[in-house]
Amino acid sequence: MIIEVLAAFVGTLAFSVFYNVSKRELLFCGTVGGISWTVYLFVNAFIHDSIFSCFFAAIVISVISHILSRVRKNPVTIYQIGGIFPLVPGAGMYKTLYYIVNEDYTLSTYYLYESLQIAGGIAVAMILIASLNNLLIKR
Protein backbone atom coordinates (compact mmCIF):
# COMPACT_ATOMS: atom_id res chain seq x y z
CA MET A 1 0.00 0.00 0.00
CA ILE A 2 2.85 2.38 0.79
CA ILE A 3 4.28 1.68 -2.66
CA GLU A 4 0.91 2.44 -4.28
CA VAL A 5 0.61 5.74 -2.42
CA LEU A 6 4.19 6.64 -3.36
CA ALA A 7 3.37 5.79 -6.97
CA ALA A 8 0.29 8.03 -6.80
CA PHE A 9 2.49 10.84 -5.47
CA VAL A 10 5.06 10.44 -8.28
CA GLY A 11 2.38 9.96 -10.93
CA THR A 12 0.43 13.06 -9.88
CA LEU A 13 3.63 15.09 -9.77
CA ALA A 14 4.55 13.91 -13.27
CA PHE A 15 1.13 14.76 -14.68
CA SER A 16 1.24 18.17 -13.01
CA VAL A 17 4.39 18.83 -15.02
CA PHE A 18 2.40 17.80 -18.08
CA TYR A 19 -0.24 20.40 -17.10
CA ASN A 20 2.50 23.05 -16.76
CA VAL A 21 2.08 23.74 -13.06
CA SER A 22 4.84 26.07 -11.88
CA LYS A 23 7.89 24.50 -10.23
CA ARG A 24 7.09 25.87 -6.76
CA GLU A 25 3.71 24.11 -6.61
CA LEU A 26 4.72 20.72 -8.01
CA LEU A 27 5.47 19.10 -4.63
CA PHE A 28 2.15 20.26 -3.22
CA CYS A 29 0.30 18.78 -6.19
CA GLY A 30 2.09 15.48 -5.76
CA THR A 31 1.29 15.42 -2.04
CA VAL A 32 -2.40 16.11 -2.69
CA GLY A 33 -2.41 13.23 -5.18
CA GLY A 34 -0.81 10.91 -2.65
CA ILE A 35 -3.29 11.91 0.06
CA SER A 36 -6.18 11.42 -2.33
CA TRP A 37 -5.16 7.83 -3.12
CA THR A 38 -4.48 7.09 0.57
CA VAL A 39 -7.99 8.21 1.52
CA TYR A 40 -9.47 6.24 -1.36
CA LEU A 41 -7.69 3.02 -0.34
CA PHE A 42 -8.55 3.55 3.30
CA VAL A 43 -12.28 4.15 2.74
CA ASN A 44 -12.48 1.42 0.12
CA ALA A 45 -10.99 -1.11 2.56
CA PHE A 46 -13.93 -0.51 4.89
CA ILE A 47 -16.95 -0.21 2.65
CA HIS A 48 -15.85 -1.76 -0.67
CA ASP A 49 -17.63 0.80 -2.82
CA SER A 50 -15.44 2.64 -5.31
CA ILE A 51 -17.97 5.41 -6.05
CA PHE A 52 -18.41 6.42 -2.41
CA SER A 53 -14.67 6.10 -1.82
CA CYS A 54 -13.99 8.46 -4.74
CA PHE A 55 -16.60 10.88 -3.41
CA PHE A 56 -15.04 10.86 0.03
CA ALA A 57 -11.49 11.22 -1.27
CA ALA A 58 -12.63 14.11 -3.48
CA ILE A 59 -14.16 15.84 -0.43
CA VAL A 60 -10.92 15.50 1.53
CA ILE A 61 -8.70 16.76 -1.29
CA SER A 62 -11.10 19.63 -2.08
CA VAL A 63 -10.81 20.85 1.51
CA ILE A 64 -7.02 20.55 1.34
CA SER A 65 -6.93 22.34 -2.04
CA HIS A 66 -9.02 25.22 -0.75
CA ILE A 67 -6.74 25.62 2.25
CA LEU A 68 -3.63 25.38 0.06
CA SER A 69 -5.01 27.88 -2.46
CA ARG A 70 -5.61 30.37 0.34
CA VAL A 71 -2.16 29.86 1.86
CA ARG A 72 -0.23 29.75 -1.41
CA LYS A 73 -2.39 32.41 -3.20
CA ASN A 74 -3.10 30.31 -6.27
CA PRO A 75 -6.29 29.13 -7.99
CA VAL A 76 -7.86 26.04 -6.40
CA THR A 77 -7.82 24.21 -9.73
CA ILE A 78 -4.07 23.67 -9.64
CA TYR A 79 -4.19 21.48 -6.55
CA GLN A 80 -7.61 20.03 -7.23
CA ILE A 81 -6.75 18.65 -10.67
CA GLY A 82 -3.68 17.01 -9.17
CA GLY A 83 -5.75 15.55 -6.37
CA ILE A 84 -8.52 14.08 -8.50
CA PHE A 85 -6.11 12.68 -11.06
CA PRO A 86 -5.80 9.21 -9.46
CA LEU A 87 -9.59 9.07 -8.95
CA VAL A 88 -11.09 10.20 -12.25
CA PRO A 89 -12.54 7.53 -14.52
CA GLY A 90 -10.11 7.86 -17.42
CA ALA A 91 -9.78 4.12 -17.80
CA GLY A 92 -13.56 3.74 -17.49
CA MET A 93 -14.18 6.20 -20.33
CA TYR A 94 -11.66 4.30 -22.43
CA LYS A 95 -13.28 0.94 -21.66
CA THR A 96 -16.74 2.33 -22.51
CA LEU A 97 -15.64 3.29 -25.99
CA TYR A 98 -13.37 0.25 -26.33
CA TYR A 99 -16.29 -2.13 -25.85
CA ILE A 100 -18.42 -0.11 -28.24
CA VAL A 101 -15.68 -0.55 -30.84
CA ASN A 102 -15.69 -4.28 -30.03
CA GLU A 103 -19.51 -4.45 -30.21
CA ASP A 104 -19.92 -5.63 -26.61
CA TYR A 105 -22.73 -3.32 -25.61
CA THR A 106 -23.45 -4.86 -22.20
CA LEU A 107 -19.95 -4.21 -20.88
CA SER A 108 -19.79 -0.80 -22.53
CA THR A 109 -23.03 0.29 -20.84
CA TYR A 110 -21.74 -1.01 -17.52
CA TYR A 111 -18.52 1.00 -17.80
CA LEU A 112 -20.37 4.08 -19.11
CA TYR A 113 -22.60 4.22 -16.04
CA GLU A 114 -19.71 3.45 -13.71
CA SER A 115 -17.63 6.28 -15.23
CA LEU A 116 -20.53 8.72 -15.04
CA GLN A 117 -21.22 7.78 -11.42
CA ILE A 118 -17.59 8.22 -10.37
CA ALA A 119 -17.22 11.48 -12.29
CA GLY A 120 -20.54 12.67 -10.86
CA GLY A 121 -19.45 11.80 -7.34
CA ILE A 122 -16.22 13.70 -7.67
CA ALA A 123 -17.97 16.68 -9.29
CA VAL A 124 -20.58 16.84 -6.52
CA ALA A 125 -17.84 16.69 -3.88
CA MET A 126 -15.96 19.54 -5.57
CA ILE A 127 -19.10 21.70 -5.83
CA LEU A 128 -20.11 20.93 -2.25
CA ILE A 129 -16.79 22.10 -0.83
CA ALA A 130 -16.65 25.13 -3.13
CA SER A 131 -20.14 26.20 -1.99
CA LEU A 132 -19.26 25.66 1.65
CA ASN A 133 -16.13 27.71 1.13
CA ASN A 134 -18.19 30.54 -0.35
CA LEU A 135 -20.65 30.37 2.52
CA LEU A 136 -18.07 30.32 5.29
CA ILE A 137 -15.57 32.82 3.92
CA LYS A 138 -16.90 36.01 2.35
CA ARG A 139 -14.74 37.02 -0.58
Binding site: I81, I84, F85, V88, P89, G90, A91, G92, M93, Y94, S115, L116, A119, I122, A123, M126
Partner: peptide, 8 residues
Protein backbone atom coordinates in the same frame (compact mmCIF):
# COMPACT_ATOMS: atom_id res chain seq x y z
CA UNK B 1 -7.75 9.55 -21.52
CA UNK B 2 -10.22 12.30 -20.57
CA UNK B 3 -10.91 11.52 -16.91
CA UNK B 4 -10.48 15.10 -15.74
CA UNK B 5 -12.45 16.36 -18.77
CA UNK B 6 -15.56 14.26 -18.02
CA UNK B 7 -15.42 15.23 -14.33
CA UNK B 8 -15.21 18.93 -15.18
Amino acid sequence: VPGVAITN
